[in-house]
Nucleic acid binder design. Structure first.
Length: 1069
RNA sequence: GCGGGUGUGGUGAAAUUGGUAGACACGCCAGACUUAGGAUCUGGUGCUGCGAGGCAUGGGGGUUCGAGUCCCUCCACCCGCACCA
């Protein structure tokens, strides 16, 4: 009899459905096992061969675990909220609910054809109100909770309120709290809620009147239509995922995810440890003591070297011959007596010598005697004042009389003058992971958005700074990130080094990001590549703290260097210096140890229609949560999906939904308005694995009994594309629900397996430009051709089926002519691309199931290679798997034959005879191999082991029930339909789904002898068979007397004979 | 640039602990049965050489009696992150 897979598969699929063969219940004495697939978004395109790869892998494992005696939960559902359905609605006017329903039906039909063992009675759809009621409920929990920093977990916000009322908070007393308005309190609580509302930037496209997702914006314009997109601040909801950063990191230690997956998450969280250091800001620098130093940047020198020497003599003279008034004032200002400012006497500046100068504040004090009144003197003074003004010096004059008679007034004026620029006393905070390099700081860099820029920029740098900021603003984020050119501008201000007192110029550059750390860095050019390049580009002198490890031509970022030129850190290894530096910084009160994360809080608002509505009502601008009784807050039905005004979502257009009347008894002018945005796609998918446990519960999101029984997912299979999105969010939600006592575990997925992506293998034909003539791939170089995608399904390998080609695309190529290869074939070009309809490289699983059957399809997908590996799809080769199943079939049935001109079906040929030792050996070898391979998801080798088994049984002409029955059970997870059919052919009445898994018995596979490979000097020369218990002393004489060994020894004595029992023999000459 | 991964026949790939490299398939070659076959079966198939043999796991080096596997180094490709201080 023939293997009629279509009939067989239809028959058993129907049977399993009718008998609810895949339904699981929550009460079982068996151990539980939870196998989960990442549920799909039901797109309109339906399934292609890439989708089922992971589903088949999980299905095999689920069935395998069931056979091994587990109560297996293996559900499926749909992530059915999302943007594509809404865009489709915008284009066609079809309601997303309808298209979604249609798509889900298609998906289910396709999935069922492949014969998955999903328990459809537990199906969930995220867009179903009975489901999203609970998504909204979890949102309320997030809104009504805060993260307690001391116990590191979520707690009800009411506890925080109670604390504020009785003890106050960090920034206010209990009394202040209690006297605050409701709005003030709410605003403050928003800073703690796990789901909070705040102002954030969105991509606003004026022309489309809508907000766009990041990937809908390309190069600053909208992907659709190319309209300009700007950043716009809007009220947005956020999830405080940053509060969980540490626990999300720690949790990775106890889950079984691939290393790359964990790294991706760690990378995304981006934890770094270091210090936040405060630098005082100063407008002007200390001069170098002698006024020398050609290397110093503009403003650092007060005079030229030549003049300095010349003027110094005058200065000395003047100091000796100081007037009475000068001496009097000197006594008042020396030793930083006034405002802690350093004054110098007779310090040469440019070509003159002022009486006093405070260089830090650029303040010059002159005490005038009589001779200043002459005309020449006045002109000279004016010129000098002009020069000083241009160079940002402030000049203040006193007469001798004022100084001698009214000192308090003089000092007050001086004090006021020195206050100039105060408030710049504000500190510059930087974040660094390398506080050990603090003595290598040569400049500071602020992000162009930094708040301090306005305050600290020196007068003479204002224009340059403004130009630079304007330039930065003109560039998109993308440009700023893509471009590696060094740009920046000096602010004219200086920071004071907290240890050395050195004055460090403050620059602005776009290479510093405003969003990370403090938006400002201390630059250590000898140890950081970017700082180094910046220093070189702007000619900033570089301090070397690395000694010989810094060569002056590139930065050395190593952490294994002993520091030099670093004061109290000298001689320390950098790694220990980090600790020493942080300690000192903390002790001196100039900074703190600080941990930073790259991860930002997750934006949770979408200005869209097709998502969960927020259970929030805004009452005069204060967000009020609905209660659980108000849920679900159903998505109102709309006919139009156009965005709302000012970037709001379409819901804002539905006036009678969005606006609520004030409750009775309240003032009617109070505005009640619903939240108009909806939740993002990941809301529903962040907890669906919990709902499967208890999908019909209308009292709770999941009962404690159900979640305690099923616990976390034992095996989760899906693609890597969710590495940081879905997986982080669902891990966070799980932790919150755990903290709040809803569930008893805080990691959702114990083990994660990532299936590889199946790429498309596209085929091309080459049309001679401007004609309807097609050139075969081998000859395209002779013509000017234009490649066209051709449907892979009409290409056999690379050979085009010309007849089918002429029929495709509505006969567009019906009259095509061809330039063929010399052997008369048309050969197509090929390329690996993403599988997509537009590239004509999709292969539909339905077609393959129709042509070869679901069992063949399942096994072939697994046979392609390791599940985790990405590979292009190639239908060639599926025949091999199909042949294998037919061969299996022939172990049960004889071939059809022709008798008297009539086809007679073959008869069952299996027997109840006792198996031979050879047959048992084949069986038990297979049991061991299949069991091992399935357990470690090595499905490709398992399929090959089945082939080996069937090949060997066919060779042995083994038709024995005792053997075949066991093989069928092993095969059930891989090819359930044929297994069930043949199981019944053998006379079984129950389903093979619940058969007892075969037990491996080593006794049947034990060998008595082993064919040892014999190598001479490591090269294999022959094999000799020895009994298994043979020892070295037994084998040596036999090996040495072996003819081939003798030949290779060439009469020499062997140095050594290596004998590894059960492995090999190596003779060393 | 950083992190993770991969490199093995004409192709997809095996080799779980350092121990007979290429299992199992596809494809190809030859043959059998057939009116025919894209059905089924048998045999062959890494490269090279008439042969004994030699050469082969991205390249180079090392450790070892023995290396696809371990170490060093270089190269190529894929994935993720990307001015994160």
């Amino acid at each position: 009899m023939e293997y009629k897979f279509r009939e067989i598969e239809a028959k058993w699929q129907k049977h399993w459905k009718e008998t609810n063969a895949y339904n699981v219940n929550n009460n079982s004495s068996k151990p539980k096992y939870y196998v989960l697939d990442m549920f799909p978004y039901p797109s309109g395109a339906g399934l292609h061969v890439g989708h089922p790869l992971g589903y088949i892998a999980s299905d095999i494992y689920a069935r395998y675990k069931r056979l091994k005696g587990f109560n297996v939960l293996h559900p499926m559902g749909f992530d059915s909220f999302g943007l594509p359905a809404e865009q489709y609605a915008l284009e066609t006017g079809q309601h997303p609910a309808e298209t979604t329903k249609k798509n889900i039906a298609t998906f289910k039909k396709q999935l069922d054809k492949i014969g998955f063992c999903f328990d459809w009675s537990r199906e969930v759809q995220t867009s179903d109100p009975s489901y999203y009621k609970w998504t909204q409920k979890i949102f309320l929990e997030l809104f009504n909770s805060y993260f307690c920093d001391t116990c590191k977990k979520a707690k009800p916000i009411s506890e925080l309120v109670k604390k504020y009322e009785t003890q106050g908070g960090k920034h206010f007393t209990a009394e202040q709290w209690n006297n605050s308005s409701e709005a003030e309190k709410e605003e403050w609580l928003m800073k703690s809620r796990l789901a909070y509302s705040s102002y954030g930037e969105v991509n606003w496209c004026e022309a489309l009147g809508t907000v766009l997702a990041n990937d809908e914006v390309v190069n600053g314009v909208s992907e659709r239509g190319g309209h300009p997109v700007v950043k716009k601040k809007m009220r947005q909801w956020y999830l405080r995922i940053t509060a969980y950063a540490d626990r999300l990191l720690e949790g990775l230690e106890k889950v079984d995810f691939s290393e790359s997956m964990k790294e991706m998450q760690r990378n995304w969280i981006g934890k770094s440890e270091g210090a936040e250091i405060e630098f005082n800001i100063n407008l002007t620098p200390n001069p170098s003591p002698s006024g020398e130093g050609q290397k110093t940047i503009s403003g650092y020198r007060t005079t030229s070297v030549e003049q300095w020497k010349f003027l110094l003599e005058f200065a000395k003279q003047n100091r000796k011959n100081a007037t009475e008034a000068e001496n009097a004032l000197w006594q008042e200002v020396r030793n930083r007596k006034i405002k802690n400012c350093k004054f110098r006497k007779q310090h040469p500046i440019a070509g003159f010598i002022p009486d006093f100068v405070c260089l830090e504040k650029r303040l010059i004090v002159e005490i005038d005697g009589e001779y200043h009144d002459t005309k020449e003197q006045k002109q000279y003074d004016e010129a000098r004042e002009q020069w000083l003004k241009e160079h940002n010096y402030q000049l203040i004059r006193f007469t001798n009389e004022e100084v001698l008679n009214d000192m308090p007034n003089v000092l007050q004026q001086l004090g006021e003058a020195l206050s100039f620029g105060e408030g710049l006393g504000e500190v510059l905070k930087v974040y660094t992971t390398r506080p050990d390099t603090i003595f290598g700081v040569d400049f500071m860099v602020l992000a162009p958005e930094h708040d301090l820029i306005q305050t600290i920029t020196a007068e003479e740098q204002k224009i340059e700074v403004e130009n630079y900021i304007a330039y930065v603003k003109s560039r998109s984020d993308r440009e700023r990130q893509a471009e590696k050119n060094i740009s920046g501008v000096f602010t004219g201000a200086y920071a004071v080094h907290p240890f050395s007192g050195k004055h460090i110029p403050i620059w602005i550059s776009e290479y510093v990001l405003s969003g990370y750390g403090t938006g400002a860095i201390m630059a250590v050019p000898c140890g950081d590549e970017r700082d180094f390049k910046f220093a070189k580009h702007f000619n900033i002198p570089i301090t070397n703290i690395l000694g010989k490890h810094f060569n002056g031509t590139e930065a050395n970022a190593s952490k294994d260097i002993v520091l030099e030129n670093s004061d109290f850190l000298n001689g320390l290894q950098m790694k220990e210096a980090i600790e020493v530096a942080i300690k000192k910084i903390e002790d001196e009160g100039i900074g703190t140890r600080k941990i930073n994360y790259k991860m930002r809080d997750a934006g949770f608002s979408r200005q869209r229609y097709w998502g969960e509505p927020f259970p929030i009502v805004w009452v005069n601008g204060i967000a009020k949560a609905l209660t659980e009784n108000d849920l679900p807050l159903e998505l109102p039905h709309v006919d139009k999906y156009k965005p709302g005004p000012e970037g709001e979502g379409p819901l804002a257009n539905i006036k009678d939904w969005i606006n609520l009347p004030s409750p009775k008894g309240e003032e009617q002018r109070v505005r009640y308005k619903r939240e108009s945005s909806t939740m993002p796609g990941y809301a529903g998918s962040s907890w669906y694995f919990l709902r499967y446990m208890d999908p019909h519960n209308n009292k709770e999101l999941v009962s404690k009994e159900a979640s305690d029984y099923w616990n976390s997912v034992d095996l989760y299979i899906g693609g890597t594309e969710h590495a940081v999105g879905h997986l982080l969010y669902s891990r966070m939600w799980t932790k919150v629900l755990y903290d709040l006592g809803y569930i008893g575990f805080d990691e959702p997925f114990k083990r994660l397996l990532n299936q590889g992506m199946i790429q498309g293998s596209s085929r091309f034909v080459y049309r001679v430009a401007g004609t309807n003539e097609f050139v075969s791939f081998g000859k395209i170089s002779e013509y000017k051709v234009q490649p066209l995608h051709v449907d892979v399904n009409i290409v056999d390998g690379v050979e085009l089926n010309i007849v089918e080609f002429k029929k495709c695309r509505n006969g567009e190529f019906a009259n095509a002519t061809f330039i063929l290869e010399d052997d008369g074939k048309y050969i197509c070009g090929s390329e690996v691309e993403k599988m997509s309809k537009s590239k004509y490289n999709t292969v539909n699983p339905d077609d393959l199931c129709e042509q070869y059957g679901a069992d063949t399809f399942r096994m072939y997908e697994m046979f392609l290679g390791p599940v985790e590996q990405s590979k292009p799809w190639d239908t060639k080769g599926i025949e091999g798997v199909h042949r294998f199943l037919k061969k299996l079939w022939r172990l049960f049935y004889s071939d059809n034959n022709f008798t008297n001109g009539q086809q007679v079906d073959g008869k069952p040929i299996w027997t109840s005879d006792a198996p031979t030792p050879e047959e048992l050996k084949v069986l038990h070898k297979t049991i061991k191999k299949i069991d091992d391979d399935t357990e470690r998801f090595s499905y490709n080798t398992a399929v090959s082991a089945f082939m080996v088994c069937i090949n060997e049984l066919a060779e042995l002409k083994c038709y024995k029930k005792e053997i075949l029955e066991q093989v069928l059970i092993l095969l059930t997870p891989y090819a359930p339909h044929i297994a069930e059919e043949l199981w019944h052919v053998l006379g079984n009445e129950t389903s093979v789904l619940d058969a007892a898994y075969p037990v491996y018995n080593e006794a049947f596979t034990k060998e008595t002898s082993k064919e040892y490979p014999v190598s001479i000097n490591g090269k294999l020369r022959t094999t000799i068979t020895f009994s298994l218990d043979a020892e070295q002393k037994d084998v040596e004489p036999i090996v040495l007397s072996n003819e081939i060994v003798q030949k290779w020894l060439e009469g020499k004595q062997p140095k050594k004979i290596i004998f590894v029992k059960n492995k090999m023999i190596n003779v060393v000459v």
